[in-house]
Design a binder for these strands. Structure first.
Lengths: 108, 108
DNA sequence: ATTTATTATCGTAATATTGCAATATAAAAA
DNA sequence: TTTTTATATTGCAATATTACGATAATAAAT
């Protein structure tokens, strides 16, 4: 045990869970917010913005990239990172639908 | 090591991360979707809907409750669970803001 | 060619999560 | 009161995550 029983759930359920999980750490939220603040691709800098060692930040960036939340473009000896909008759209749509459905509930 | 460095991030960043983390498991997404499908408080039933043992489901429900995503009302010897809308509103607003900011980006 | 700067990977320790059997708890039903 | 039903808690094994030092990889600068 210890491993998530991915097989038993739908692709959509797993997709949303993977994206949400990637955002389930304050360092990764801080990375997303920093990319939004500078409002452009950013090369370097990210490590200096966070209270974590370089390998740790690199690992968090990798997870955000795997979840499709950010994109990384090689630019010389640095890598430019930026928000990958379409994955955030998936999340926003998903939660908007939840809100729409739930406001019609009459209970509790 | 191994523990998240919560102290170094803002309250808002930690709040969003905690909510996202709670949604970062397909079983918990499935629970939310089931509560939406029945569109009311539901007593019992949840365990039968999921491919997991009762203690495991109970644990997932507890995590969703801790994150403020669901509410549980005692009703006789059963407990009625339902969506806690306001926490989903927090998430929807957060992601809507991200989408609004990011669409103005010109790069990558 | 060597140094410098930037990012990734490896290895590893500490901690957290997932899942379940066994058991506990609490209220309704018999 | 005993049984049944519904949910929670405990304890534990398996696995995953977090964090970082050391090191590798890569390309620019000297």
């Amino acid at each position: 045990m210890g491993a998530t029983k991915t097989d038993h759930f739908t692709d959509k359920q797993n997709q949303i869970a993977i994206i949400a999980k990637a955002l389930g750490h304050p360092a990764r939220i801080a990375i997303i917010e920093y990319l939004l603040k500078v409002n452009s691709c950013i090369c370097g800098d990210i490590v200096n913005e966070l209270p974590l060692a370089q390998p740790t930040v690199s690992q968090h960036l990798k997870e955000l990239k795997n979840a499709g939340l950010i994109k990384g473009n090689i630019e010389g000896n640095a890598i430019c990172y930026c928000i990958d909008e379409k994955t955030f759209d998936v999340l926003k749509d998903y939660f908007s639908n939840i809100i729409l459905t739930v406001t019609n509930q009459k209970c509790c």
